[in-house]
Nucleic acid binder design. Structure first.
Length: 876
RNA sequence: GCGAGAGUGGCGGAAUGGCAGACGCGCAAGAUUUAGGAUCUUGUGGGUAACCGUGGGGGUUCAAGUCCCCCCUCUCGCACCA
């Protein structure tokens, strides 16, 4: 009995069914291999968007596929639920952040459910709830114990809009804005001098760098970004004695990666923030000018000041240092491009061989001395147009005393050694990576479990007093400062050490702390003794496949790698790296519509008249704008809910997997969605029409006997082979789905060519197994319709628990070969031969081909190339 | 500037060095329908043709979208890191 495809009914039926039967709940199982499939958990902003649909569709196909391949799959979901929007909602609407967050979680959970995702909801985590954040606090305390969390005073990035400190990773470049901007609100970030909590991520810098080599299944560009962010460089620290040294500053220590050029150091430069500056200038006539310069430079935010194209500026301190290699007295300058945080905050300046020093020296007419000559020997000291920054073997040392004549690499080595034997300094390694400033002056975050006691100083909250709960009695005013300061119940506390009065830390943790270890919590989400049960972690870790956006290439992924190493050192997990494979999916984009009168407009506010698109309000012609990431402001949003209402979750999933390879941007197309919907309807109808034919027979996998059977089985098994191959190799969902479409097209053709009446039992059985294979292959992509049709064709157990079909190589091969014939590499003809025909026979047949003879024009081929089953090429 | 990636029909995109353009969209014709929509079938890189076609130019090869060299364009990331 044929039925029409009612996606609403089918989808809600199976969603309830999966839930009621607990189909996706997973336990550790020693009998089958494990697979941990994880997508980056969402921030509960209110509703899911197409980006969510895409990433979760990708993860769900992986999880379902791996399950069918015989793995027991951990596929959890949770909420990255702390963050500023909840607090802003509290300020604007008077809703408590917790209420706002929990409502959003409930709503979005129901939306995710509608997508038919195979999550084990029993493992759900929510970072904003005490049963989670107590363990973030616990980890923090362990890090304090190990010196990995500490307080220091320093210049920090401050977002004036969010009124909080930001980590370096959270300050981003922004087109059209002078300086770095906040990763969340895009306000220009300023510098503030504050005492703050930091994580000593730099202690793991080398390991984080080395670990990149293990991550062979990560996208190259993510690794490149991580390596660059860590920024290791090898060099030498060298003391330059100060002339007429005063007691407090006898030498200036510099860091250089080019010790080979030291004989060319004709001046020094200090960072404006360096305390050495004040010590050197005190009492000198230059002091005022220097102070003015320093004040002017430090007013600028860091990003502006350090822009590469910024003019080199500086001021002479009046002091001199001694180049230890030449004994020359060289002037000490303060320069705007020297960074206090990098190296020692002081450099030796070699204008001949460093572009910045070159520009600086030209500006202030400081001598330039050539100490590396190029291999051709053509460099003339007085005629340099740019610094000669030759590396490694390219040049040779000149004007360098006993070191002259050495190669660059040789010179580096020799001078480095000389510095050490003379006791002038040491060879060392420098990193660009800075410690992670992780305290935030906000309410809706994990409270930092520390106290300030008048007697004992900084005190940890004892472990048995965790969690430090967020207080309820906090007014949300939107005014600056930490809201927790204003909670009387929270701030005042008794010191656990001396019993005196103490004040609680009122800062909360950066939300990136929460997401740095959630993947471990999923292993044992209900553990009440520790953040993660080491046995559970041993079973499940590492995450085999991680899926998420490229925007976290540095931030989240670097922090998560750091935390994994910390928790490993605490004995909670045994893995060094959390994520084995990483798939960074592209953005979901859509065309934008622009009306001169009404600016960005919704597609629904436009109409098509005579092939032109007009604004419905003002009748102006709509300009089709750039295809951009979906955003509310550009009004180029497609709504997952409308999509599910109209076409169903299966269509939404299918389209987001089919329209582009997963790592590329996906351009949303309403007609493309319809194409996918059409395909599912075709599948439905195919099965309905076939059902009557094979209802009473069992499927077969035996060798075929009739032409129809051969064709049906070949199409089916070729598709099994192709889909399996596409999924195993880099998850090429788009081509996998294309081959499923091809199979359906082929089966329709075969059905048309061989009417269903009068088929043999064998042929019916062949049809049955073809349809079953089709449904099994479709299952991970469009699970609801696959379940429904699976049930309709007489199966009692879920298709999600069936083994993945295996292709039979014997059934894939064809009984005849079509061999292209080329002349000089160009296709000129084709011949059809029986499968198994030998090379000589094929060449003979080809030579008998009329078209080929025309092309040969009586000549004999100089050479004949035959590629087994592929082609013949005659070279004349 | 440095790093990563990309450039193929009207569009999204396929092609272990071996038939370029799978699959889908769009478009066209036909069938069905009172009409529209929906559905189905067929066709669809360009050119009347010989032929020409994967950003441009060289090269390797019997054979290049694919490998090598040079160049151009675009996207993303980092940008004075001594």
């Amino acid at each position: 009995m044929a039925q029409t495809y009612d996606h609403q009914a089918v989808e809600s039926k199976w969603q309830s069914h999966w839930e009621q039967t607990g189909l996706f709940q997973i336990k550790e199982d020693a009998t089958t291999p494990k697979y941990y499939c994880l997508e980056m958990f969402p921030y509960p902003s209110g509703r899911i968007h197409m980006g969510h649909v895409r990433v979760y569709a990708i993860g769900d196909v992986v999880a379902r596929y791996k399950t069918m391949r015989g793995f027991h799959v951990l596929h959890p979901m949770g909420w990255d639920a702390f963050g500023l929007p909840a607090e802003n909602a509290a300020i604007e609407k008077g809703v408590h952040p917790n209420v706002w967050t929990q409502e959003n979680v409930a709503y979005m959970k129901q939306q995710l459910r509608r997508m038919g995702l195979s999550y084990d909801w029993d493992r759900e985590v929510n970072t904003s709830q005490p049963d989670y954040y107590r363990w973030s606090q616990w980890i923090f305390l362990k890090m304090v114990d190990r010196g990995l969390a500490y307080r220091k005073r320093s210049a920090v990035n401050w977002c004036p809009s969010c009124e909080t400190v930001l980590a370096n990773e959270q300050v981003l470049a922004h087109e059209g804005k002078d300086g770095g901007v906040c990763w969340r609100c895009e306000s220009v970030v300023i510098q503030k001098e504050l005492e703050q909590w930091f994580f000593r991520i730099t202690q793991y810098a080398q390991e984080l760098l080395d670990g990149c080599d293990q991550l062979t299944s990560w996208p190259a560009r993510v690794l490149a970004m991580q390596r660059h962010w860590i920024g290791r460089s090898e060099g030498v620290e060298i003391d330059f004695p100060v002339v007429d040294a005063r007691e407090d500053v006898t030498a200036i220590r510099i860091f250089t990666t080019r010790p080979d050029t030291i004989h060319g150091a004709t001046f020094m430069s200090l960072a404006p923030e360096s305390p050495l500056v004040e010590q050197l200038i005190a009492g000198r006539p230059e002091a005022d000018a220097v102070r003015q310069f320093v004040a002017r430079v430090s007013r600028l935010d860091k990003a502006t000041r350090t822009a590469a194209d910024r003019e080199k500026e500086g001021v002479f301190t009046g002091a001199y240092a001694i180049n230890p290699f030449t004994q020359e007295h060289i002037p000490i300058w303060v320069a705007n491009f020297v960074l206090y945080e990098y190296g020692t905050g002081a450099i030796m300046a070699v204008p001949a061989h460093d572009q910045r020093d070159f520009e600086f020296a030209n500006q202030y007419t400081i001598p330039i001395r050539l100490v590396i000559q190029n291999p051709e020997g053509t460099l003339v000291p007085d005629a340099l147009e740019a610094a000669y920054e030759a590396q490694v073997e390219a040049g040779a040392l000149v004007n360098s005393g006993t070191f002259s004549g050495r190669s660059v690499s040789d010179g580096k080595q020799a001078i480095g050694e000389h510095v050490e034997t003379q006791g002038w300094g040491k060879r060392t390694v420098n990193f660009r990576l800075r410690d992670w400033g992780m305290a935030r002056q906000r309410y809706w975050g994990t409270p930092i479990p520390m106290l300030y006691c008048d007697q004992c100083g900084i005190v940890s909250v004892p472990e048995d007093q965790l969690p430090v709960l967020l207080p309820e009695d906090v007014p949300f005013t939107g005014k600056g400062g930490s809201p927790l300061k204003d909670s009387p119940s929270f701030a005042k506390v008794t010191c656990p050490t001396c019993g005196g009065t103490a004040r609680r830390e009122s800062d909360t943790m950066d939300t990136f702390v929460d997401s740095s270890w959630y993947f471990l919590r999923y292993c044992s989400p209900k553990d009440t003794q520790q953040p993660v049960n080491p046995d559970a972690a041993k079973h499940w870790m590492a995450v085999d496949q991680y899926v998420g956006g490229i925007e976290h290439a540095v931030l989240h992924l670097l922090y998560a790698r750091f935390f994994t190493k910390v928790l490993r050192d605490l004995g909670l997990t045994t893995v060094d790296e959390p994520f084995v494979h990483l798939l960074t999916q592209g953005m979901v984009t859509k065309e934008t519509y622009w009306c001169e009168e009404h600016r960005w407009v919704l597609p629904s506010d436009t109409k098509k008249v005579d092939g032109q698109r007009l604004c419905t309000q003002c009748e102006r012609v709509i300009v089709i704008g750039r295809t951009e990431k979906m955003s509310k402001s550009k009004k180029n949003i497609a709504s997952p809910e409308e999509l599910c209402d109209r076409y169903g979750a299966d269509t939404a999933r299918l389209f987001s997997l089919f329209a582009a390879p997963p790592e590329k941007d996906l351009e949303w197309s309403d007609t493309g969605v319809e194409g996918c919907s059409r395909f599912l309807h075709r599948v439905w109808r195919l099965v309905q029409e076939q059902r009557a034919v094979f209802e009473e027979v069992q499927s077969t996998s035996g060798s075929a006997s009739t032409a129809l059977l051969v064709a049906v089985q070949r199409a089916t098994h070729q598709t099994i082979q192709k889909v399996t191959h596409d999924l195993d190799r880099d998850f090429q969902f788009n081509t996998a789905i294309a081959s499923l479409m091809e199979l359906v097209n082929q089966l329709y053709k075969l059905m048309k060519d061989s009417p269903l009446e009068g088929l043999s039992v064998d042929e019916r059985a062949g049809w049955r197994s073809a349809i079953e294979c089709l449904l099994l292959l479709l299952g991970p992509f469009a699970p609801h319709i696959a379940e429904e049709l699976w049930e309709m064709t007489g199966h009692a157990t879920s298709i999600a628990r069936q083994p993945w079909p295996v292709f039979n190589p014997d059934l894939v091969v064809s009984d005849e070969w079509t061999i292209p014939i080329q002349v000089n590499g160009k296709l000129r003809s084709k011949i059809i031969v029986q499968a198994g025909t030998t090379k000589d026979q094929i060449i003979a047949t080809a030579q008998g081909d009329d078209k080929l003879q025309e092309w040969l024009q009586g000549k004999t081929a100089r050479k004949v190339i035959y590629v087994e089953q592929k082609m013949v090429n005659f070279v004349i």
